[in-house]
Amino acid sequence: MKPFTQHEGLVAPLDRVNVDTDQIIPKQFLKRIQRTGFGQFLFYDWRFREDGTPDPDFVLNRAEYRQASILLARDNFGCGSSREHAPWALQDFGFRVIVAPSFADIFYNNCFKNGLLPLRLPGEVVDRLFAEVQRRPGYRLTVDLESCEVRDGQGWKTGFDIDPFRRESLLKGLDDIGMTLSKEMQISRYEQKIPGYMVPTEA
């Protein structure tokens, strides 16, 4: 996995609560068997009108946000389906950080597996950031995972909390399957104690 230490980028505001993974990547694009190439389908039904032309009103279609790599969002971002295609699509589109007051659990987990940082900030801070993006065209943020700090280059900054283990894994880009495999002895020992009835056998 790609490590994540620090990221500086343009912020795009997606001012909606409960953005579900069906919106992030609609089901018709889940049939691909690769991990890549999902960016073109990100927010498909919002980005494109029924005739397939881009909807100029949708925030990610506006010229000033074309280069955005930080997505600013509202509560319960990523709810619904467990599809990991959602973080794949966000990342493939160019996002490295999603900022929101809260995230749905499975989506939150999935982001870390892909080097995408879901950054939880308090509701008031997110409100403030939405206001700043409105007020200052080209508003940028630096997200520093090493110092656990977000800065805007105009003197504003705030710290953030993140689970230390998740932080460490992102910073180092650790292979967590490899880490579990190194527990081979413990796993085998556990398996010896599993009651026989737990292993499915056919009548």
Partner: peptide, 30 residues
């Protein structure tokens, strides 16, 4: 699949996971 929660009706701890975790469980059963 997120609706794995269905199986909790039996008193099983059942939860949905992403594809990276599917790979993790396939490889390690943990």
């Amino acid at each position: 699949d997120s609706h794995t929660s269905t199986h909790g009706a039996f008193g099983a701890l059942a939860f949905g996971i992403g594809t990276s975790e599917v790979e993790h469980v396939l490889a390690t059963q943990c």
